[in-house]
Lab assay of single mutants.
Amino acid sequence: KKKIKIYIENENGEKKTIEIEVEGDIDEIAKELAKKYNVKIVKIEP
């Protein structure tokens, strides 16, 4: 498992940072999160 930080922006332009532990393809997981929460991924840090 890797701990990563995902910087997101919602439709109101509010920026947030999510810190999660992931296993597998980080890009795939980030895309799923973006779709699920309707946010834009700004940056992903390993």
Score class of each variant (00 low, 15 high):
I6K: 00
Y37W: 14
V42P: 00
A34I: 07
K40W: 06
A30T: 07
K35D: 04
K3H: 09
I4Q: 01
T17Q: 05
A30M: 15
E21V: 08
I8P: 00
E28P: 04
E28S: 09
I29D: 01
K16I: 12
K35I: 09
K43N: 06
I41E: 01
Y7V: 09
D27M: 13
E45W: 10
G13Y: 03
E11N: 11
K16S: 14
Y7C: 06
K31N: 10
K15I: 15
E9Q: 10
E9Y: 07
E28C: 11
E32L: 15
I20D: 00
K35C: 07
D27L: 13
I18N: 00
G24W: 04
A34Y: 06
V39A: 14
I6Q: 00
K36H: 06
K5V: 12
K3F: 15
I4H: 07
A34L: 06
K5A: 05
D25C: 06
I18C: 11
K43P: 02
I8K: 00
N38M: 06
E11F: 12
E45A: 05
G24I: 02
N38P: 02
D27H: 10
I6M: 07
E14K: 07
K40E: 04
I26D: 03
L33E: 00
N10G: 09
E23P: 03
I4K: 01
T17A: 06
E28Q: 12
N10P: 01
P46D: 12
I29C: 10
K2E: 05
E21R: 05
I44V: 08
G24P: 01
K16Q: 12
E21N: 07
E19I: 13
V39W: 15
I44A: 02
D25K: 04
D25S: 09
P46S: 13
E14R: 07
E11T: 10
K36F: 11
I4Y: 15
E9T: 07
E45L: 08
V39T: 04
E14D: 10
L33I: 13
K40P: 03
N10W: 14
E28A: 11
V22Q: 05
I41H: 02
I26R: 02
E32N: 10
K1S: 09
K1F: 14
K15S: 12
E21K: 03
D27I: 10
K2L: 15
K3T: 08
D27E: 11
G24S: 04
K5N: 05
V42D: 04
V42G: 01
I20W: 07
T17N: 03
E11Q: 13
N12H: 13
N38H: 10
E23C: 14
I6H: 00
V39Q: 03
L33Q: 00
E28R: 11
V22D: 06
P46A: 12
E14Q: 10
K16C: 15
G24V: 02
P46E: 14
K2N: 09
Y37N: 03
K3S: 08
I29L: 11
G13T: 01
K40A: 06
A30P: 01
A30S: 05
I18A: 01
I8T: 11
K31C: 09
Y37R: 02
E28K: 10
K15R: 13
E11H: 12
V42K: 02
E21Y: 14
I41K: 01
I41C: 07
I26E: 05
Y7K: 02
E23R: 08
N12W: 14
V39F: 15
G24L: 02
N38K: 12
E23Y: 13
E21T: 08
I18Q: 01
E19L: 09
V39H: 05
K1L: 14
V42L: 15
I44Y: 06
K36I: 08
D25L: 04
G24H: 03
E11S: 12
G24Y: 03
N12E: 09
K43M: 10
K35S: 06
I20Y: 05
E32P: 00
E9V: 14
E45N: 03
T17R: 03
I29P: 00
P46C: 14
G13W: 02
I20P: 00
P46Q: 14
E14T: 09
I41G: 01
I44D: 01
I6C: 02
E23V: 11
I41S: 02
P46N: 11
G24Q: 02
E21L: 09
K36W: 09
K40C: 11
K36Y: 13
E19H: 09
D25Q: 05
I4G: 02
I44T: 02
E23N: 08
Y7N: 02
E21C: 14
K36Q: 06
E21S: 08
G24T: 03
K1Q: 07
K31A: 12
D27V: 10
K43R: 12
V39I: 12
E23T: 11
K35W: 08
Y37A: 03
I20M: 14
K2M: 15
I4A: 06
L33V: 05
Y7W: 13
T17Y: 10
G24F: 03
I44K: 01
K1T: 09
Y37P: 02
